[in-house]
Design a protein around this nucleic acid. Structure first.
Length: 312
DNA sequence: AAACCCTCCAACCGCATGGGG
DNA sequence: ACCCCATGCGGTTGGAGGGTT
């Protein structure tokens, strides 16, 4: 129906990057007409450019227009883009109307190359501005590294050596909470306890033990001594920087005191919290791995908290 | 030094929309 | 109501440049 083929399909019409000469020709032509363009389709011929009108329009609106601001985005602009995206979605042209001198194309590129990546690395879905499911965080974050992911699975498997399924679950929960800031349900569900232990058929973060101090008390009274490889595996996580605090693999059995001392207080507090939306995650500093470390990046923390509080 | 990989962004592509005849 | 055309818009691509092996 009705649409004529674009002039861009004409043979001999130049494509690709613009030269300075072409830029100058286009700018001078538009300036000669008082900054107004009658018809983009007729412009190339009138200006003496071997380009299609669409290409000229794009070059002018995205790059040559005198009111365009070039250079890095400011923190305020970042903040505004995230807030507007949470409200409007991928309406780049609408978002661009709120940022002086920025084009929709530039904002779109900036979103796709910088902001989206940053949000994902923090465990936030850039499309919905909600917290990513645990599995997605594992895949998108530092644990996408095969070695680290394998180490995690190995540690989880070695927890089977513990003499109580409940203690296994608690220890694994603690480990995963420390690694993933509470988003442990995915791996917890895939963890199979020994058959002779009385365990719920399906594990998840909320069905284990709701209070971390209770877990520690249970550990203290369980008088269990885990296999050395458990400690070694946990220590290897520490080496990977997943758990920031160094563990001492040659220490005595991990009583509650040892475990508490081995993990920062913030981790213990994080383990005690239920899994919630990412706004709650951001409400206070949590010791987390580098893939979603927020406590040293207040700018992003504030910005995300702001965008997540918008009415949708 | 060279090959390879990755990131970034300008530019392209094709569909949607709206206005005029 | 229909057709044609110009422009707007968002998704995608390709190549330059920088970093890594």
């Amino acid at each position: 129906m009705g649409r004529s083929p674009c002039c861009c399909h004409d043979a001999g019409v130049k494509k690709g990057p613009w030269t300075e000469e072409e830029d100058r020709t286009l700018v001078e032509h538009i300036q000669r007409h008082g900054g107004h363009v009658g018809s983009w389709r007729n412009l190339p011929k009138a200006a003496g450019l071997n380009r299609c009108g669409k290409s000229c329009r794009l070059r002018w609106t995205n790059y040559l227009r005198p009111d365009i601001k070039h250079g890095n985005f400011t923190d305020d602009e970042d903040r505004l883009i995230i807030r507007l995206h949470a409200e409007l979605g991928n309406k780049w042209s609408t978002i661009a109307t709120h940022l002086d001198g920025r084009t929709d194309n530039e904002i779109k590129n900036y979103w796709n190359t910088h902001i989206r990546k940053k949000l994902r690395s923090m465990g936030v879905d850039p499309a919905t501005h909600q917290r990513l499911p645990p599995n997605d965080i594992l895949i998108s974050g530092a644990l996408a590294s095969p070695g680290l992911h394998q180490a995690l699975l190995s540690a989880a498997a070695s927890l089977g050596g513990l003499n109580s399924a409940l203690v296994q679950a608690q220890a694994l929960q603690l480990l995963l909470q420390a690694i993933n800031g509470g988003a442990a349900a995915g791996l917890m569900a895939s963890f199979s306890p020994a058959a002779d232990n009385a365990m719920p058929p399906m594990l998840n973060a909320s069905s284990i033990v709701p209070n971390f101090q209770d877990q520690m008390n249970l550990l203290a009274h369980a008088s269990y001594r885990p296999a050395d490889d458990v400690l070694n595996n946990i220590a290897s996580f520490a080496e990977h920087g997943v758990v920031q605090q160094q563990l001492n693999a040659s220490a005595p059995a991990p009583t509650a005191a040892l475990v508490s001392a081995s993990f920062p207080r913030e981790v213990v507090a994080a383990a005690d919290r239920p899994v919630q939306g990412f706004a709650d995650l951001l409400s206070e500093p949590i010791e987390m791995p580098s893939m979603c470390s927020l406590e040293d990046d207040h700018f992003w923390k504030d910005m995300l908290a702001e965008s997540s509080s918008l009415p949708l």
